[in-house]
């Protein structure tokens, strides 16, 4: 009963238990998992060879269990600019997030906490959005960033409400969804978004929505 296009996926996760769980969820959703591997080298090899739509990778993998998955993701985005990459992390670390968003590539990119996977529908929804070229950041990460106030940053020029809107944009929400959350009209959200673009002086020739979110995330 997939209500979306089936995706061709390469999955990298070193813990067998979680790999099996992810596999079951992805296959239940009708996606095709071309390869499920346990380390970054295999991920690189399989991705180069099979050209999937999306790569899902854990950050920490053998041999050093630090950020192999992240480095592999960056490398893959460099090699295959259209590839969508969804990175799973066991915990929130801004360093990971900044590194990931700084990688080049036109395909979608996502950063989710592993706990999110249990919310199967949300997870699959995020996956579809990443595959569709969007930038998706875990709501908990965004909440944490919102919690933090950095004085004198470039976002200081924004009003409280605009920051709120930007935070929701960073979660990957559409204007309609933001309007519902904040109990305002979609037109009001559009006005806020326009103000954000203007205040941050974003180049109109780029995807300003993405640029704004990146500015937001980088500062935090």
């Amino acid at each position: 009963m997939p209500d979306h296009a089936p995706l061709r996926i390469v999955l990298a996760e070193d813990a067998a238990l979680l790999r099996e769980g992810l596999l079951a969820i992805l296959e239940r959703a009708g996606h095709e998992v071309i390869a499920a591997v346990g380390d970054a080298d295999a991920l690189l090899a399989f991705t180069d060879h099979t050209r999937p739509d999306v790569v899902i990778t854990d950050i920490r993998m053998p041999p050093t269990h630090t950020d192999e998955g992240l480095r592999a993701a960056a490398e893959l985005r460099r090699r295959h600019p259209d590839l969508a990459v969804l990175v799973l992390s066991a915990y929130v670390a801004d360093a990971y997030l900044a590194e990931l968003l700084d990688t080049t590539g036109g395909g979608g990119v996502g950063y989710l906490l592993k706990d999110r996977v249990g919310h199967v529908r949300d997870f699959l929804d995020s996956l579809d959005r990443v595959a569709g070229g969007e930038t998706v950041v875990d709501p908990q990460v965004v909440r944490g960033l919102l919690n933090r106030h950095q004085p004198d940053g470039p976002l200081d020029v924004l009003s409280e409400r605009e920051r709120e809107v930007l935070g929701l944009m960073a979660e990957g929400r559409t204007n309609g969804s933001i309007a519902t959350t904040l109990f305002v009209s979609e037109a009001a959200v559009r006005k806020h978004v326009g103000n954000i673009f203007a205040k941050l002086r974003l180049d109109p020739t780029t995807d300003r929505r993405v640029s704004a979110v990146l500015a937001y995330l980088r500062e935090a």
């Binding site: 238990l17 979680l18 769980g21 969820i25 066991a90 592993k114 706990d115 996977v117 249990g118 199967v120």
Partner: peptide
């Protein structure tokens, strides 16, 4: 334990 719990939430989610 942590990994088993994550796996459990995945199964329950399914």
């Amino acid at each position: 334990a942590q990994q088993r719990l994550v796996a459990l939430t995945m199964t329950l989610g399914l």
